[in-house]
Each structure stands twice: as structure tokens, then as C-alpha cells.
Design a protein around this nucleic acid. Structure first.
Lengths: 257, 257
DNA sequence: TGAGTTGATTTTGTGCACAATTTGTCGCAA
DNA sequence: TTGCGACAAATTGTGCACAAAATCAACTCA
């Protein structure tokens, strides 16, 4: 939703005034994506304090950019923003996790219910293709890709159902889900199950059996939720390592203090 | 080297331009509320361009405050924010309106379903009290208050159901609903119906009859949606009149010195 | 020895000035 | 008269510097 693709017209004079990092000028959406990915990958465990200045230096952007990314991340409940006290990675409670899954069951049941009545053969094929890619990624051990595809499956499902408002709401829930899931369990095991569940769901949709599709979806989400379990998380605070970036500006200043 | 003697408030750089710690210093949330209310009251019809400078002068805040309020309003879909082209009041399409109501039916059905099983006598009383206030407001012709109470009813219902995530989602939908409704019809008529619907819903909840409550809720929402009809809206652009504030620049604010 | 307080440092918040983009208008030519 | 282009005005976007708040540390006093 925060879509701002601009800032790429460097046709005029090439600004000789410093600003060497203009080549890879990151925007708000880039920062948003980097932080989001880092959260999903557990590189930034829940509770981690996110300071503006270190991040701005790391990404080579101004504090304002970081700040805007923060507010968007906070809107998605990925991070928590406390006045005058900075930002930290959200630590969803177990209760919140359960509520999140309950909300997804409600919305996604409604989605597959509607979709079962209107789905076309072409759409079935598209979904099958998606699941196939998902499966391939699993077999290759590319868990990051697989997780992403698994999430995309739900997004595509929603958009096929044709209710743009529900798509928007589900998108928020989907964004928060990995934070909740990864906070409590190992992602590797879930994905395989997800893959099988997705196949069953498609079969139900193809048969235009709404009730069966709803059951399949609820079952799928319950499978995910049922595996929630408390785990410990080791806090890491070295941003450069977390984001896999080198020294932001001057290499010799990489002491980062 | 920067051994600046801090702790000295506004003595170094003498800000000659009023400003001072005015008693009525508006914050981001105030601006948000003002604009939101103005949109709901039809003082800012859909499509109205919202310029930063006039608004900042009107409210006596900086452009940054306006900008922050804008981004929050945009997150709620109250306004639309286009890069380099400013903000305008959202103009939800008829399709989007229908999707919105469909989404509310989904979520609120789930809410009353859950609530029917867990509602207490105290909660029933609270809901009845709310509806009574609502009714009183209607009879007095205080439509603004009545609409607010009517909206609150749904919020309270959601929070009673106990799913915080669904509360958050529904809050977004509720915020957008008036924009959609008021864009297409006269608010006076709806409210009376809403009042009766609310009473029926409470009765169903009190009887712990989930199915009946769901039907009542869906019926209630369908009543609202069924009355949608295209209407014209007269654009008004005089901000001072719209917001009911005096001169934009520096009115009697100087008296606060 | 410990708790409370005071001062300094770090971190966040905000206003302002300038830059970039868009929009409106006027002139010129076909 | 109309279409196109360039210039000018208005509006939004952004970086920077300063202000306020909070955190941290040391020190005093009981």
C-alpha cells in the first residue's frame, strides 16, 4: 500500500556537491522492505530497539526517510512506535497471535466462499502454477522464496475473490502473520504442510464446493496456529550484520559507534 | 566543541514571530480529527483538494503536522495521497462501497457470532444504555451525536467480542463507512432504522441466539447498503467557513501571550 | 551501602529554507 | 483558430539545524 515509486530523474546537472551515494539512493519503500524482511528473517527479533541515526547512516538516507518508513511499519503493526521513546520491533502476545489467526479464518473463509462460486478454469490453473513454484522452492531448500510464494498464494486468492476491501484488510493480517509465526516456531516445518493444504484448497475450489473450501482454509490456518509454541530469541544488535550491508558511507568509520 | 549552554529556553534565538507555547497548540491528532469530522459532515465533499499551506495556516500548525495527519488519513482511506500532487478527499466508487459493506457483513457477523456465546448481562445493559442515548439524540434531532453513538455501538460490540485484531480491522471499516454512506444518501433516514436494528440485535444477543444475531447484523448492514443512491455533492472550497474557524493567519491568538 | 537527585549525553521531535515537480498561462507559428 | 512549447507561479518534497525529551551515570546525603 505504501507505493511511492519516484525519484529517478537525474537527467539534469549531476550535482557535484557531495552526495556520492546518489547511485543507489534508497527510498522509503526500500527501507520499509529491508526492515520488514529483516524482521521476518528473525534478524531483528521482537523487542529490538530501532534507532533512527544508525539506520539512516546504514542505509545512506536521511532520518526523515527512516521516520516515514517507521510510521508505515507501525501502521502495519510490524513495529511499535512510542512517543519520544523510539521504535521497536513489535512483540505480539500469544493472545494477539490467536486473535490474528481467528481474524484470518473469518476473512479467508469469506474469501474462499465467494471465490468458490466464481472461480474460472484459468484461475485454477494460475493457482496450481503458484503451488507448483512453491513446491519447487521447498524441494530446493529455498525457504525464503517458498515462504514468499506461500504468502502470495493467499494474496492471489483474495484478489481473485473480487472484494478490494477484503484484500486490503487481509494484506495487513498477512503482513503480521510471519512476525507472529516466526516468533513462536521454526518456519521450515510449517511450509511443507502449507503446500499440501494449498493443493487441497484448490481441489475444493475447482469443484466449486464452497463448504469444502471453507473447511480446507480453516483447517490450513488452524494447522499453522496449532503449531505455535514459545521459543527463545537471541537478540542481535549489530545493524550492519543484520542487514548484510557494508559500511554505509566511509569505510574507515565502520566502527559504528 | 559544541559546548552550547542548553537548558536555556527560547532566549538565544529570539523567535519574534509569536508562536510561543500557545495554550491552543494543535497536534497531529487534532488536525486529523478536524479534517475527519469535516469529511463526515460533508463540509469537505469527496474530491476536494487539500492544500498543505492553507491548512497549516488555518490550524496554526506547521506543514509537517498537516503532512503527518495526511498520511494517517490516507492510511485510513479517508483521503487519497498522490505523489507530488497533493491530497484530496477520497471518492469511493460504488463498487468500493459495496465491497466495504460486504467486508463489514463478514467481520461483524463473526463478531456477533462470538459475542452471542459469551455476552454477560452487564454487557447487555451497557448496549441497551447506548441505544437509549442514541434514541434520545435522534428525538432531539441531534443527528451528529446520534450518528456518533450509532457508530460507537458497533465499536463497543466489537470490543466486547474480545478479538483485538478484529476490533482494529473493523475500526478501519467503520471509519470509512460514513464517507461512503454520506456520499450517496441523506443520513437522517438511516439513523432511525439503525436504532431499531440495534434493538433487535441486542435482543438476539441476550437470548444467546448466535444465528439470529448474525441475521440481525446482516440485515442491519444490508438496510444501510440498500439505501445507497447516487447524489450530487456541491463542492465547497472556503476552508475557513468549512472548519468554522476565524481568520487563518493570526487572529486573536495573540491574546494568549 | 543504598536511594534519590542532579547534570550530561544520547535520541527523538520540529520548524525552516531550499529544491524539485507540477500546473497554469502566454506567446508564437502553422 | 488551434496546437505546441516555454516560461512563470504555485505546490509538494527533502535535508538540515536546532529544541525538547529521555536515558544514563555519577555524586551526595542519609
Amino acid at each position: 500500500m505504501p507505493q511511492r515509486k519516484i525519484r529517478n530523474v537525474k537527467s539534469q546537472t549531476a550535482k557535484p556537491t557531495l552526495e556520492l551515494s546518489a547511485a543507489n539512493a534508497l527510498t522509503t519503500v526500500d527501507v520499509y522492505a529491508h526492515i520488514y524482511e529483516a524482521v521476518l528473517d528473525h534478524r531483528l527479533p521482537p523487542g529490538t530497539k530501532l534507532k533512527e541515526v544508525p539506520l539512516s547512516e546504514l542505509f545512506g538516507v536521511t532520518r526523515g526517510t527512516i521516520r516515514k518508513a517507521f510510521s508505515q511499519l507501525a501502521a502495519m503493526k510490524i513495529i511499535e512506535l512510542r512517543p519520544n521513546r523510539g521504535a521497536m520491533v513489535a512483540s505480539p502476545s500469544l493472545q494477539e497471535s490467536r486473535d490474528l489467526f481467528a481474524a484470518r479464518r473469518t476473512i479467508e473463509s469469506s474469501i474462499v466462499d465467494a471465490l468458490a462460486r466464481r472461480i474460472t478454469k484459468v484461475q485454477v490453473s494460475q493457482l496450481r502454477a503458484l503451488v507448483k513454484q512453491e513446491d519447487i522452492a521447498y524441494r530446493r531448500g529455498e525457504m525464503r522464496t517458498a515462504l514468499k510464494l506461500s504468502v502470495d498464494f493467499h494474496r492471489v486468492l483474495a484478489s481473485m475473490a473480487g472484494n478490494s476491501v477484503l484484500v486490503g484488510l487481509l494484506d495487513q493480517l498477512i503482513s503480521r502473520t510471519p512476525l507472529v509465526v516466526l516468533a513462536y516456531r521454526d518456519p521450515a516445518q510449517t511450509n511443507e504442510c502449507a503446500n499440501r493444504d494449498h493443493a487441497e484448497l484448490i481441489a475444493a475450489l475447482e469443484a466449486k464446493d464452497a463448504d469444502r473450501a471453507i473447511v480446507a482454509m480453516k483447517c490450513h490456518l488452524c494447522n499453522l496456529e496449532g503449531k505455535l509454541d514459545l521459543r527463545d530469541a537471541t537478540p542481535v544488535n549489530e545493524l550492519s550484520a543484520i542487514f548484510g550491508l557494508g559500511a554505509p558511507r566511509a569505510p574507515s568509520v565502520s566502527s559504528a559507534r
